[in-house]
Nucleic acid binder design. Sequence first.
DNA 1: GGCGTGACTTGAA
DNA 2: ATTCAAGCCACGC
Length: 111
Amino acid sequence: MDNTNFFDKVYEVAQLIPYGRVTSYGAIAKYLGAARSARMVGWAMNNSHTKDVPAHRVVNRVGVLTGKHHFDGTNLMQQLLENEGVKVVDNQIVDFAKHFWDPVKELSGDL
DNA sequence: GGCGTGACTTGAA
DNA sequence: ATTCAAGCCACGC
């Protein structure tokens, strides 16, 4: 289970993201103790389609929908975010800091 | 089996 | 202040 521990953690945290909230790969990675392994989080998201993981709530550090290209359509990710009340302009989340959901702070290591 | 790429981040020059 | 570089680990060729 150590082989998928990191990935499963990413999926788990991603599913814990509240409605209308977003987080960054680094935030999740940091919560997992791998702040510099943010890429792995993104790679894990690559398999997120096999899980019920709302990957559209996960963006990069500046709030840009970097992975929207991996979604079914082209603007599906943005549509999903806007559907939750998150405004997105030019693939970038508006008031990202307000919508930012930090698992390290919100969960406070409760996991 | 080695090299490059990738849904990123942080730190140093 | 911005720009450049390195780090991280897994997967594809």
